[in-house]
Nucleic acid binder design. Structure first.
Lengths: 233, 233
DNA sequence: ATTGGTATTATGTATATACATAAAGAGCTG
DNA sequence: CAGCTCTTTATGTATATACATAATACCAAT
């Protein structure tokens, strides 16, 4: 039978994918509409819709009302990264996790942090420096600012045994945030804390999270040399 | 009215989100099942399903058949990154794009590349080095290997005016791949090509793509200092 | 030719219904 | 009590139908 086993939206998706890969449908082409495809595949339009919607989410199809569905000209593939809790990240790799607090204080942040956290001059924030270790080796240096106006409970936590990373994830829900990935050259503090040389390239994640219109926290994670963040697409 | 305007799966999603954020439903809690929620919200179960499925995809809910739906204990937030064509990335930032080919040759790859590309000893690959510039400044150094067995057409392209990045995206469909993000310390070649100092931290993207069981290409993108990759969650 | 309104059309969503499937839990058996 | 089946149950999916909405295409009036 020519239809093989086309049943279920996944099969429809697979068949559409096949046609794209074999260039039966080339980038820029408008493909048949949902009604036609449902007829061809012998399934309901909703099933075709589910498949095409999914492919559009993956960035392989462009869909517009009335205009129809076309194969994406520039397949802007979307890689989805998991942003795990650091302890779980380390443990998932089979390493022993250890945590140690470096410092904890209230202070006025430098101007760049003030901008990111949208606080006024003179506002003091909770500042925490901590180190996460894998098998006894420094893994990532956590440099975090917490807004006490948004998270007053944080003032009662000493962060001696629990990292702010973990405490926040477990206790403070957030609505959204933004992440920036970059690289920097290790300075004196980095080299000291991460036990590496000065002038090494380090992987950086800067993250701010907000909820209810307030910035909750802003953190810089500085990873030890050799860190790699992997994903598939 | 207490229900406000709960209609449409997005409203259902918003309401569920609200209950999570207000801790009415705490991490680990099992929430009412689809049938109950559809009754409460006065909509069809399919509508609730759509909303909850979406939230599960975002990593906020854990769903299992029979076990029910619960609020994720460790909200592994998924950040989706766009992986654009370099030229579009640069142009989107409002910079003038320029491209220049550095070298093009057939050669046997070093052992690490041979591993990534799954080729045998003695197999020769097409090796291309190229530079992408933004407003005349080096932006990213493209160091690519192409498998001529998978992409024989590439042998007829000189890549003088079109980057392999762009040519491949436009001409060779791929099924999947993997990406690794990391940082490295600039060496002599990096410093020369990217016009920066030696010993600077550089952002690295390593990507391999495959189709039909064959590795098509493997590339290392070395970004000039200051590059940042941004996303929201 | 430009403007502007209207008809057309493909996707987007909601609905009730039905059946499939995974997995937990009960109950049975050795 | 370990190990097995069977039942129960919540999610997963497919279906036909209906209506909503965005965006194009067409036609008329200026």
């Amino acid at each position: 039978m020519t239809t093989g086993g086309i049943s279920g939206w996944q099969s429809v998706q697979d068949e559409v994918l096949r046609r794209i890969h074999t260039r039966q449908w080339k980038p820029g082409d408008t493909i048949p509409n949902e009604a036609e495809l449902s007829l061809e595949f012998g399934c309901a339009r909703a099933t075709v819709n589910r498949a095409l919607r999914n492919l559009a989410e993956m960035g392989l199809l462009d869909r517009k009302r009335k205009a129809g569905t076309r194969v994406a000209l520039h397949p802007v593939r979307k890689a989805t990264l998991d942003i795990p809790v650091i302890r779980r990240d380390i443990e998932a790799k089979g390493f022993a996790y250890r945590y140690s607090l470096i410092s904890r204080s209230m202070r006025e942040p430098p101007i760049d942090v003030r901008g990111r956290m949208q606080t006024r001059q003179g506002d003091r924030l909770l500042h925490i420096k901590a180190l996460h270790m894998a098998n006894g080796r420094p893994y990532v240096f956590e440099n975090r600012w917490i807004n006490p106006k948004a998270v007053p409970q944080a003032l009662d936590v000493d962060f001696e045994t629990n990292s702010p990373n973990e405490w926040l994830v477990a206790n403070i829900p957030f609505e959204g945030g933004d992440i920036t990935f970059s690289a920097k050259t290790s300075g004196q503090e980095d080299a000291h804390v991460l036990d590496c040389g000065e002038g090494e390239g380090l992987f950086i994640i800067d993250r701010s999270t907000w909820s209810g219109g307030q910035i909750i926290t802003s953190v810089r994670l500085t990873f030890a040399p050799g860190y790699r963040m992997h994903t598939e697409l």
